[in-house]
Amino acid sequence: MKKLLNTIYVTTEGAVLRKDGENLVAEVEGAERARVPFHMLGSVVVFGAIHVSPALMAACAGGGITLVLLDRNGRFQARIEGPVTGNVLLRRAQYKASDAPEEIVRSVVIGKVANQRAVLMRSLRDYGEEHEAEDRAAIEAVTERLARILRRVELSDDTVDLLRGSEGEAAQLYFSVFDHLIRSPDPEMRWHGRSRRPPLDPVNALLSFLYTLLTHDCRSACESVGLDPAVGFLHRDRPGRPSLALDLMEELRPVLADRLALSLINRRQLRVRDFEVRDAGAVFLSDEARKTVLTAWQERKKDERQHPFLEEKAPLGLTPYLQAQMLARHLRGDLDAYPPWFWK
C-alpha cells in the first residue's frame, strides 16, 4: 500500500480494508498494516481480491472519498462515490481543453520523445562495447536527431497537427534503430518495422501484447480519476477508441513496454519457439509465453523510480494513475501545465 497525492493504493491480495472510528484501517492476515484518517484521503484504489467492508464504503461515500475497484491486472471494474462529485465539471473541462489541446499535446510529445531517447542512450551505456561500430553510430545519430526534435517541440508554437508530425517523425527515427537493440540468436527475432492488426513477426507480437496491457492500465487510470478515456488530445476522437488512454500511454510505453520487451528477448526468456503463426501470417504469443510476459509485467510494475515532478519514489505500475491525477489537476486549474513523466 502506498499513499500518493492523497490517494491510497492497496495492491496486496487478501488484504482487508475497514472503518475504525474516523480512520481507514488496512489489515493483512489479521495484522494492522496501516491507519489513515479520512480527512487526509481523497480516494482509495484497490487492485484484485481485497475485502472492503460495507461500513468503510459508506464512510467513503459520505465523506466524498472515491473508492475505485480494479482487477489484479489493473482493469477498471467499478467506481464508488457519493452523490456530490466534481466529475461533471472535470469532464466539461476536459472536453473544453480538447478543442485547444496544444499545450497538453506538447507535454505528451516531450515526454514520449525524451523517454524514447533515454531508452536508446541506456542501450549505448549497457551494451556500448558490444555494439558494432556502424550500429553504435546509427543509434548515436538518432539520439542527436531526437534531441533536436525535443528542442523544436519545446521552443516552438506549433499547431497540434505539427506536434503530431513531430511525434510521428520521432517514432520513425526511434524504430529505425530498434533492431540494433535486439540481441537474440534467433534470426526470426529481428525487427523489420512495425506491423499491427495483426502483428507479422514475434517482436511485433510481443510489443502489441504489452501495449494492450499498458492501454488497459491507462484506461483504468483515466476512469479512476473521473476522466473520459474516449476524449483525447494527441489522438483524434474515433468511435470505440480510448483516445485519452492512448495519449497517457505514449510517454510511458518506451520504458514500461519497449524496454521490457527488449529485456525478455535479450535475456532469452522468449525465443522464436514461444510464438505461433496463424492464418494470414499473424503471429501471437503461445499460452506459456503469455504467462511469462504477464509475470514479468507484474514484476516490472513493482520497480520503484523517483517521480520527477512529485520528487518521491513510486512503483512504475502506479505511474499511469499518478499521471492521470496530475492531468485532472491541470484541467481543474490546480496545476499550470500537465507535467510529463521522464524516465531516468
Rank of each mutant, 00 (worst) to 15 (best):
L214Q: 12
H307W: 03
P229C: 03
G111P: 13
A328G: 14
L285G: 05
W343I: 00
R332S: 03
D20C: 02
I265N: 04
V16D: 09
G30T: 06
G30L: 04
D179L: 02
P199I: 05
S98E: 06
S195Q: 10
W297M: 00
R151A: 14
M249F: 03
L227Y: 02
V52P: 05
R305C: 00
R106A: 09
V255E: 10
L252P: 02
H51W: 09
G86T: 13
G281K: 11
L318I: 10
L162W: 00
Q116L: 04
D303T: 14
C60V: 04
L210M: 12
G128Y: 04
L260I: 04
L173S: 11
Q269T: 07
D161A: 15
P83K: 12
S43I: 06
F342K: 09
H330G: 00
L262P: 09
D161I: 10
E27R: 10
R145S: 08
V272L: 00
R164N: 10
C222A: 15
D157E: 15
L316Q: 09
R136E: 11
M189K: 05
A296E: 08
A296N: 05
P340N: 05
M121G: 00
V109W: 09
A133C: 01
G240M: 13
L90P: 07
E251W: 03
R271Y: 00
Q94D: 13
G82H: 12
L90S: 06
N204L: 05
L285C: 07
F38W: 14
P242R: 09
V46L: 14
G168N: 10
R329H: 11
L322H: 03
V113A: 01
E132M: 05
D217Q: 15
D258Q: 13
L56H: 06
